[in-house]
């Protein structure tokens, strides 16, 4: 599999710093929740840059949507967030990744834990779970700075109300919505344990966020008795180096 031409068919602001792009790719085969695509941009002088972005859309939708958070000093994300317009052309390789995926084929409990923009592949799982009418117990713990920097905040609140099989917990680290029951707090070993399924529920864990976030959370879970083989992780960094 190599890169295929793609056309930006819609753009939607998510937060001040992020945007969702819908990409049309001829013959797009669909994807599994949790997969990503590699996006390649080519400059007029032939210089290319490739970056990976998680797919945000439901596996049921067949649409390819990626949510991109703008990185300071990024080479690709500033264009995707501030520059790209409907009709723009780029190249896409994927869907890629067969590990950090929720195939939606069983009813085991699933615990999702996202830090910041690490919510994106988890959102694809939540949307797929909802669209398929899955009765697998789903729980999300989303650690994020503030309501305005939270991706999909309104949709998550709505889905949590509408879907009895989905529970959503937020850990706002700097600022909460007005009248929020808990003050801003960082996720710790103790607050984590209060917000996730206990080991006896045999849940499968998906953790996505920055490397320090993912490693802290995964280590706390293992210490609390969750088997490492049921914990899947996806880490990202943010240093501006091209491949």
């Amino acid at each position: 599999m190599s890169f295929s031409p793609a056309v930006v068919s819609a753009v939607r602001a998510e937060t001040d710093n992020s945007r969702t792009l819908t990409l049309d790719v001829d013959g797009w085969p669909g994807h599994l929740a949790g997969q990503h695509v590699d996006i390649r941009l080519t400059a007029e002088d032939g210089y290319t840059a490739v970056r990976s972005y998680s797919i945000a859309s439901s596996a049921d939708s067949k649409a390819l949507e990626v949510t991109v958070d703008k990185l300071v000093d990024g080479e690709v994300s500033p264009y995707l967030v501030d520059g790209a317009d409907v009709g723009d052309r780029l190249e896409v390789r994927g869907p890629a990744g067969g590990w950090f995926v929720w195939p939606g084929t069983d009813d085991r409990p699933v615990q999702l834990i996202g830090g910041g923009s690490g919510i994106v592949p988890l959102m694809a799982m939540i949307r797929s779970h909802g669209d398929a009418g899955s009765t697998a117990p789903f729980r999300l713990l989303y650690s994020v700075r503030s309501p305005t920097s939270a991706l999909y905040f309104a949709e998550l609140m709505r889905r949590a109300v509408d879907d009895e099989h989905l529970r959503v917990d937020f850990a706002f680290t700097r600022e909460t919505p007005p009248d929020w029951p808990t003050p801003p707090h960082r996720l710790t070993r103790d607050t984590l344990e209060e917000s996730v399924y206990p080991p006896e529920d045999m849940a499968e864990f998906f953790i996505c966020g920055s490397t320090p976030f993912v490693e802290s959370v995964a280590n706390w879970l293992v210490d609390a008795g969750h088997p490492p083989e049921r914990i899947k992780t996806e880490r990202f960094g943010g240093i501006g180096v091209s491949p």
Binding site: H36, R51, S52, Y53, S54, T67, V68, D69, L71, D73, G74, E75, V76, S77, G97, W99, F100, S117, G118, V120, P121, C208, T211, T233, E234, R235, F236, G237, G238, I239, G240, V241, S242
Partner: peptide
């Protein structure tokens, strides 16, 4: 994943 100005795992 949203990344990757320098991706840090095998995914």
């Amino acid at each position: 994943m949203m990344t990757a100005d320098n991706v840090l795992d095998g995914n």
